[in-house]
C-alpha cells in the first residue's frame, strides 16, 4: 500500500457528469519527502517512511534532527511509514498528489474530533431507561443494569459505560478520488472523513 500525508481543508459539493450533487472533501496532500527506506536486510521488512509539512529546525528535538540529517532533508512535522510503494524509492525523493488518479478509490485515516466525557446514550447508542410511567423518574439517559448480583458478583470486562469519546483514529474506506489538482497539491474525494479542518490525514491507495 502506498500513500501520502495531507491536511483536511474542508467540505464542499460538486456536480458530476449526470448532474448529481456529490458531497466531497478537499485535502491538501504532499509534497512528501522520503526520510527512511527500510529493507528486509536491515529492518526485517520493506517499508518507506515519508515526511510532510516542513518545520523550522529550532522547533525540533535532537534525536529527530539527527534522523532528518541522515536522510539529508529539512525537518518536517509529520512522519508516516508505508509498506509497498510500487517503484523503488530513495532518500530525499519527493512524492506528490500525482500518485493518485481521478476515479481511483482510496482509504483515509484521521483522528476524529474529541467529544470529551460522554454518557452511554451518545457514546454507545444506548436508548436510556425510557418510559414516563411505572414510577420512572431521573433515569432518562442512564445505562440500566451492568450485570448480575451475587453471581457473578463482579462486573464483566468490556461492559460499555460512559467515558471519553472521540479522538480515535478513524479510517474511512473506498473514497472515490474526484479531482486531482496537482498544481496546488490538492485532491478532492467523495464523502466525508473524520477530524477537524486543518488536521493531519493519511491517504492510502
Amino acid at each position: 500500500m502506498s500513500g501520502l500525508i495531507g491536511k483536511k481543508v474542508g467540505m464542499t459539493s460538486l456536480f458530476d457528469a449526470n448532474g448529481k450533487n456529490i458531497p466531497c472533501t478537499v485535502i491538501q496532500a504532499g509534497p512528501c519527502v522520503v526520510t527512511q527506506v527500510k529493507t528486509e536486510k536491515t529492518d526485517g521488512y520493506n517499508a518507506v517512511q515519508i515526511a510532510y509539512n516542513e518545520k523550522s529546525e529550532k522547533n525540533i528535538g535532537a534525536p529527530l534532527k539527527g534522523h532528518f540529517k541522515k536522510a539529508g532533508v529539512n525537518p518536517h512535522a509529520k512522519l508516516v511509514e508505508f509498506k509497498g510503494f510500487e517503484d523503488e524509492k530513495s532518500l530525499g525523493d519527493s512524492i506528490t498528489v500525482e500518485l493518485f488518479a481521478e476515479g481511483e478509490y482510496v482509504d483515509i485515516s484521521a483522528t476524529s474530533k474529541g467529544k470529551g466525557f460522554q454518557g452511554v446514550v451518545k457514546r454507545h447508542n444506548f436508548r436510556g431507561v425510557g418510559g414516563q410511567t411505572h414510577g420512572q423518574h431521573n433515569r432518562l439517559r442512564a445505562p440500566g443494569s451492568i450485570g448480575g448480583a451475587s453471581t457473578p458478583s463482579k462486573v464483566f470486562k468490556g461492559i460499555r459505560m460512559a467515558g471519553r469519546m472521540g479522538g480515535d483514529t478513524v479510517k474511512t474506506q473506498n473514497l472515490k478520488v474526484l479531482k486531482v489538482l496537482a498544481d496546488r497539491n490538492l485532491i478532492v474525494v467523495s464523502g466525508n472523513i473524520a477530524g477537524s479542518k486543518g488536521s493531519y490525514v493519511v491517504i492510502e491507495k
Partner: peptide, 18 residues
C-alpha cells in the same frame, strides 16, 4: 490565521468545482 487561510482556500476551490 490558519483557519482563515484554509477557509479562503476552500472557497476558491468550491467556486472552481462548480
Amino acid at each position: 490565521h490558519q483557519e482563515r487561510l484554509t477557509m479562503d482556500l476552500l472557497k476558491t476551490i468550491s467556486n472552481e468545482l462548480v
